[in-house]
Amino acid sequence: MRWFVLSMFFLLIVLIFFISMNTGETPLSPNEIIYTLLDGGTSFQHLILFEFRLPRIVISLLVGAGLAVSGCILQGVSRNALADPGILGITTGSGLMVVLFLAFFPSELETPIYILPFLSLIGGIITAAIIYLLSYKKQEGVLPIRLILTGIAMAAAISALMTVLSLRLPPQKYDVLAVWLAGRIWGTNWQHVISLLPWLLFIFPYVWYKSKVLNVLSFGDNLAIGLGVKVEKERLKLLLAAVGLAASCVSVSGGIGFIGLIGPHLARRLIGADHFFLLPAAAFAGAFLLILADTIGRSILQPAEIPAGIIVAIMGAPYFLYLLAKTDK
Rank of each mutant, 00 (worst) to 15 (best):
V99C: 11
Q139G: 00
G183V: 06
D84Y: 13
V69W: 04
T91G: 01
M1S: 09
M8E: 08
I33P: 11
V77H: 07
F52H: 08
L11P: 07
G41R: 06
L147S: 01
A128I: 00
L270Y: 09
L201A: 14
L12W: 07
T150L: 09
L223A: 15
G64L: 03
A81N: 15
G263E: 08
A83M: 07
I256E: 01
L165Q: 01
A273E: 14
G244I: 05
Y132A: 07
I262F: 00
Q191F: 09
A285V: 08
G244C: 09
S107N: 13
I314F: 14
C72S: 13
S218G: 10
L279G: 01
A153K: 09
Y114M: 04
Q302I: 12
K237V: 05
G254F: 01
L47G: 06
M97W: 08
I113L: 12
P198C: 03
F9G: 02
L67M: 12
L227W: 00
V250W: 09
K233P: 07
E234M: 14
I90H: 05
I310N: 04
T91D: 06
A155D: 02
E232Y: 13
E51A: 12
P27Y: 11
P55G: 01
S135A: 13
Y174N: 13
E305N: 07
F276V: 00
S120I: 03
A304R: 14
L278C: 01
L37Q: 04
D294T: 09
Y319H: 05
R269S: 14
V142C: 00
Y114T: 04
V213D: 09
Q191E: 12
L301R: 07
L167D: 08
L323G: 00
T295M: 13
L301A: 14
T26E: 08
A153H: 11
G93R: 06
R168L: 11
I291G: 00
Y132E: 00
L200R: 02
I300W: 13
C72K: 02
F204L: 01
L239V: 11
E108H: 15
G257L: 03
A81G: 11
A281N: 08
K137C: 07
T23Y: 08
Q75G: 02
A282S: 15
W3F: 11
